[in-house]
Structures are given as structure tokens and as C-alpha cells.
């Protein structure tokens, strides 16, 4: 156990820790430095301009976020419906357009890659948490 004694001296982490104590933390303080008592309340205050939100880490140029859809150009070919791995897209027969359930979407971007008319795009929006999986924000049509 004397080897244990030698070993006790070797703690390479301690100098690093003492240095880090005086450096900036690495955490990004999104959406606020400390958890607000109510997150929804905090977001409401932000929308009223009463509180400032700390920005999230920037997304890269080709980020795959919430899907966007322009029904004008859509020809209703339903290729996207066929190819969607998550069965998140359905064809609305009356209008020959599609409806996308974002709560089901897995953000693979396969449909936007193959849409012959370029009607589907991935946006950089990723804050999609919701209490209702069929809320207006989570159905794109």
C-alpha cells in the first residue's frame, strides 16, 4: 500500500481545476443563466419584451430543422409520402397537397432532397417542444 502513498501525490487534475476556477464557464446560458421559475412564463415575458433571452448556439448553414412547405408549387406527386421513413406525411386528396406531422418527423431531410418541385425545405427552427403533438405549430400544410 506504500505505492498508494506515491500515487496520492499524482493528481494532474488539481492545477487544471484551480486555473478553471478563474476562467469563464463553457456553458451556453440558453435560454437564461438560471432556470426560470416557469419556463413558459419566462418565454411569455420575452415575447412581451420584459426579459432578454440568451441566444442558443448558432446552427450551421445546412442544418436540418423544422420542415417548411410551399403548397403553390406542389403537384401532389406524393413521392415524399412514399419515401418518408417515419410515415409523417400524408396526402390531402381534396387539394392534392400534403400535410406533415412534425411531431412524427425524424428530420432526415429525405423528402426535401427528392421533391421534384423544390416545395419542401428544412428551416433552422429547432425549438419545437410542445404539450400537444397536434398543435398548429407541429402540423405543416
Amino acid at each position: 500500500m506504500l505505492e498508494c502513498g506515491d500515487a496520492m501525490a499524482n493528481l494532474p487534475m488539481i492545477p487544471e481545476l484551480l486555473k478553471q476556477l478563474f476562467r469563464q464557464p463553457a456553458t451556453n446560458t440558453f435560454p437564461a443563466k438560471y432556470l426560470p421559475p416557469s419556463v413558459t412564463g419566462f418565454l411569455k415575458m420575452v415575447s412581451r419584451g420584459e426579459a432578454a433571452i440568451h441566444p442558443p448556439v448558432a446552427t450551421p448553414p445546412e442544418f436540418r430543422g423544422k420542415i417548411t412547405y410551399e403548397p403553390e408549387g406542389c403537384i401532389g406527386c406524393s413521392l415524399c409520402v412514399k419515401i418518408c421513413p417515419a410515415h409523417a406525411i400524408e396526402l390531402v386528396n381534396e387539394t392534392k397537397t400534403i400535410r406533415i406531422y412534425v411531431s412524427q418527423c425524424i428530420f432526415c431531410s429525405q423528402c426535401t432532397d427528392m421533391c421534384p418541385k423544390g416545395s419542401l425545405k428544412m428551416s433552422d427552427e429547432f425549438l419545437l417542444a410542445d404539450e400537444d403533438r397536434y398543435s398548429d405549430n407541429l402540423i405543416v400544410e
Binding site: 446552427t59 450551421p60 442544418f63 436540418r64 428530420f107 432526415c108 431531410s109 428544412m122
Partner: peptide, 24 residues
């Protein structure tokens, strides 16, 4: 993770592979 996100579009679930090649 940031570099993967830059190259593939997502941090996890890269979705880069396609049958017969890569997508990006």
C-alpha cells in the same frame, strides 16, 4: 459534434449515408 453538424446537418442521426453513396 460541431464538425459533424457542419458536415452532415445534425449532431446526432447524421443521415449522411444513402444506398450507393453519401447525401452530402
Amino acid at each position: 459534434m460541431d464538425t459533424i453538424e457542419l458536415l452532415t446537418g445534425n449532431r446526432v442521426n447524421y443521415g449522411i449515408i444513402q444506398i450507393g453513396g453519401v447525401r452530402r
